[in-house]
Amino acid sequence: MSFQEFIEMGGYGPYIWSSYLIAAALFIGLFVSLKLQRNKLIKQLRRRYHQQSKQSQQ
């Protein structure tokens, strides 16, 4: 099988490749958004804990 044939998939290439690409995009998108959510959360919590410890020192 040539590379050209592999991409064309017997004429069904667009349907097959877009199925896989949409799935990949969605999974990667989910992971990235969860990662960003986690980073934001940790930043917020650190700031909050920092303020709390400052208040308790005063």
Binding site: L34, R38, L45, Y49
Partner: peptide, 24 residues
């Protein structure tokens, strides 16, 4: 699981173990 860990940090933020995990 990853999403649950975020949820735990967010809801349990006043617990002392979370403060230790976050690192302060």
């Amino acid at each position: 699981m990853y999403r649950m860990r975020n949820e735990i940090l967010s809801r349990e933020h006043s617990k002392s173990w979370v403060k230790e995990v976050i690192g302060l």
